[in-house]
Amino acid sequence: MKVQVRVMPKAGILDPQGKAIAGALARLGFEGVGDVRAGKVFRLDVAETDPAKAKEAAARMAGTLLANPVIEDYEVEVVP
């Protein structure tokens, strides 16, 4: 079963990368782009058939290693 973990910088935490991307978009002529936040996506193939258990396992991995809870939030979902 595949599980996706999306990690994003917390609201209020400075995201220099997102800021640079926003600046580049503006320079390229893409108008009307406000704030840009850059995060990470992890696709995990887990040996689990129960979606609830797969999500729970991925959430434990996210809380332990994939995300740093001081600066990042994460969301877990089962994907096809």
Binding site: P9, I13, L14, P16, Q17, A20, N68, V70, I71
Partner: peptide
């Protein structure tokens, strides 16, 4: 935590 330098 230590994140990327503000000047990138």
């Amino acid at each position: 935590a230590l994140v990327q330098n503000s000047g990138l």
